[in-house]
Design a protein around this nucleic acid. Structure first.
Lengths: 247, 247
DNA sequence: AATTTTAGTTATAGTATCTAACTAAAATTC
DNA sequence: GAATTTTAGTTAGATACTATAACTAAAATT
């Protein structure tokens, strides 16, 4: 037990490289199966088949199917968050308001472009019709993971120029308590009253997006972009920030 | 082939009664499994086991597992719609505005009290992590089935006293087209501009509800009733109707 | 060079859907 | 009322899935 190859040193070590490659292949094939044939097609056996391996070999990499799915979910989360952050980092997104618009549109673009993956991100235990009871992801984060990216921009707007806030005295006590607790959980990034506005915005945006991705208003709208932009402009109004249509 | 018992006559016929009872038992047990152990527990075998039957016997009643699930979905839809209509029929719901509040709160109450069932109603092909590709239900209806109950009340308000509408000229042409098509689909129950308001309301309400039922904002709100009521009051404002808090 | 670890294998248990072939009872027909 | 058909169930089996166990051959470590 001297140094087990390059354990502590940053050098990847031939085997680790191969193992990582296999992981990537598994994940990639699993994702393809998800996208091509739906969630039910993501089976240990199907993945192994496509890799030219026998089923049980996969258990060298994931202890169970649900662990694999959970890992994929995490990957999707990261990808989405990176995508949103990249949009916020664009040079055109030069103000908090513009960054906000950019990340909202990025969120929508990713979700629509990867609806199967987004379905897994959205899946909570109650919503998931599969036996895989997916535990809530990103519990460690103070927010719903990608909601946090949104929160950051709202907080930036708040600290830069404020926006109208409601009077906590007009709210039910239970709600005020929750807002205070949340405000603390995010380390006072927003005070409770501003947090209320943030949550209202997030609920509207995320709710709208889910309606669109899961096609819940398909009876009327096949293309919900105008409605989404309208929603966005309303958020801007709530945050007292100018709305700018997409370039 | 004389009259095959009481085929055309309304008389139920001993056997038909038994068969119907078995159907009800299957559906009831399936629902219990769904509620108790989640969507993945609703298997042909598990149902048969609980009924003291052998698995394949169930195929006398449903041609496949997905047919069974689809039948359950239909049952849930009917139950929810009946529940909403019952709320609208309460004597206290004496005006369109009150009926609107009543059905919205009924929808929420049912969804929260039957989140597993609601999860199945919500499940669209893309969202359902099960192989059962559930076809869109209520295609015959002009609306998303239970959205129609909401539509009826909005239409009642519209015809009774109107509400503010946007200018179609300010909208993207594609959206106007869709609104016109939708207005026709609902037989002109609402003109396109009023339909726009209806859809905005429905998206907000339904979106908010999904956030709550699927616990997408659980990082901040454990109890979303205040937020829901706030949403409701905003809808009332959009429809130019007085908001009344719940009794 | 000897040993251990590792990435894969096959075999197997258990559960799922669903079909096929069969049985016994009920309903229909003559 | 007897003969026939229909029906509600049965068991057996094909196929697919998750997952474990026991094994093998190659690579890595000692």
């Amino acid at each position: 037990m001297q140094m087990k190859s390059a354990e502590k040193s940053g050098v990847p070590s031939r085997k680790e490289v191969q193992r990582a490659a296999t992981f990537r292949e598994i994940n990639s094939i699993a994702r393809n199966l998800l996208v091509e044939d739906g969630s039910g097609a993501v089976t240990i056996n199907a993945i192994a088949r496509r890799m030219g391996m026998s089923g049980p070999a996969l258990y060298r990499y994931y202890p169970s199917q649900s662990a694999l799915i959970e890992a994929l979910r995490g990957q999707f989360f990261e990808e989405l968050i990176a995508f949103m952050r990249a949009a916020a980092a664009e040079p055109a997104a030069s103000t908090p308001a513009r960054r906000l618009g950019a990340i909202c549109r990025a969120l929508r673009r990713w979700a629509l472009g990867h609806s199967a993956e987004f379905g897994w991100l959205f899946a909570s235990p109650v919503a998931s019709p599969c036996e895989t009871d997916l535990p809530s992801y990103g519990d460690g984060a103070s927010c719903g993971a990608f909601g946090e990216v949104f929160l950051e921009q709202v907080a930036a707007i708040w600290h830069e120029q404020r926006f109208p806030i409601p009077n906590l005295d007009d709210m039910p006590a239970s709600q005020v308590e929750q807002l205070i607790a949340f405000s603390e959980r995010i380390n006072g990034l927003l005070p409770p009253d501003a947090a209320h506005v943030f949550l209202k915005c997030w609920i509207r945006l995320y709710g709208h997006l889910c309606m669109e991705v899961f096609q819940q208003v398909a009876f009327a709208y096949t293309d919900m972009e105008p409605s989404f932009e309208e929603c966005l402009s309303e958020l801007c109004a709530l945050l007292d920030v100018p709305y700018e249509p997409p370039v």
